[in-house]
Design a protein around this nucleic acid. Structure first.
Lengths: 208, 208
DNA sequence: GTCTATATGGCGATAGAC
DNA sequence: GTCTATCGCCATATAGAC
């Protein structure tokens, strides 16, 4: 079929899928090999060991997540436009790649030290990300607000429902079809919720 | 030392700790035995296998989380009081037991089918939980809002920062000491954020 | 109930032929 | 580059003495 792809790419595609779904401990080299249509020996020919293959995938995945954050929040748009675009994009993105965020969260929890170097090599701009939003809050809405809290509020509202989907469905007894509709609704609900909250501060600016 | 405790309790304490931190795949029966001060054979004498020990811990942990939700939101208080109490309690609780939520989320992601039965045996009241809040939104604030979205907003704002702590610290380059202060601040910030957002709906009730 | 010793299987990794 | 065969280890689980 797709024997046009190089073996290395077939391996990376397979590894990405397995690592994303099962994490480092849950993943099996045999399963990755099967999915790539090769055998274990060849896996180790291309990548020294499980660890190095995992780090390759982690680097790629973390970069993908961080990149979009940079792209959107360092662009030239009003803050509320950025938030709308971000919420829409991210709900689509993580719904499609449903394991991607949890993979990163778990990896960072399991081996924070090994992964620190990899993260530092990424093109992240944490300082800029915070400054930009702080400035826009001030200029566009007259608010003296800690931008980090706003970021975390946005991320929490967007990411939590996707990551904790099975937990939420268990607690509130939501069937699969309703859950899909529910997530779709949040593309509109979350920006509105945030906009309303920010409007509220304009009267009493008591947000830290 | 604490040889007063029965062996079974020592095992459960050890298993709880190891499973919470490392999940099912990451946990080692040897490590649990060591922590309990016994050997592996005795572990299997009390609990048939790793799976059944894990299920015991999962049942207990999930119950703890669900119980508090029920307790607070089915009580007799105003909605905003419930939210304040819930946010305060949960940020304390999951900061103290920092792995507990992620343990449940991961377990439910890994083996949703095996755990479904366990969850159904819990004393959850999903229907009541939703009805109660819906009624209070209407009666106390005049809002026709989907209560599920409000629950998820609250949970996301509270849980996400704790679960994704290492991810957040990596993206925004936050040192450990600042992160502790940051989480503490959220006890006040989150209820305010929610209150402001809900106030916003009172003018234009366009929330679904 | 608690221990030591061991069975059993699976997994990551390597040797070596082609 | 790709394969088959196999090594060596470690993890779960059991047998059997005390």
């Amino acid at each position: 079929m797709d024997n046009l792809q190089s073996t290395e790419i077939k391996i990376l595609d397979a590894a990405r899928q397995v690592f994303h779904q099962k994490g480092f401990n849950g993943a099996r080299m045999q399963e990755i090999a099967d999915l790539a249509g090769i055998n274990k020996a060849l896996l180790h020919y291309y990548f020294r060991n499980k660890e190095s293959l995992f780090e390759k995938i982690f680097n790629e995945t973390f970069g993908q997540i961080a990149l979009k954050l940079n792209e959107i929040f360092l662009s030239e748009m009003t803050l509320m436009t950025k938030i709308e675009i971000f919420v829409n994009f991210y709900i689509n993105f993580i719904s499609k790649h449903s394991y991607i965020i949890q993979f990163v969260i778990n990896a960072l929890q399991d081996k924070p030290d090994q992964l620190r170097e990899i993260i530092l090599k990424q093109n992240l701009s944490p300082g800029l990300l915070l400054e930009q939003v702080q400035k826009q809050l001030k200029d566009e809405m007259g608010l003296d607000i800690d931008p980090l809290h706003l970021y975390i509020n946005i991320l929490g509202l967007v990411i939590f429902p996707v990551v904790a989907k099975p937990l939420i469905q268990s607690i509130f007894a939501i069937p699969d079809d309703k859950m899909g509709i529910f997530l779709e609704q949040r593309k509109k609900i979350v920006p509105t919720f945030i906009a309303n909250a920010l409007k509220g501060y304009e009267k009493d600016k008591s947000f830290i």
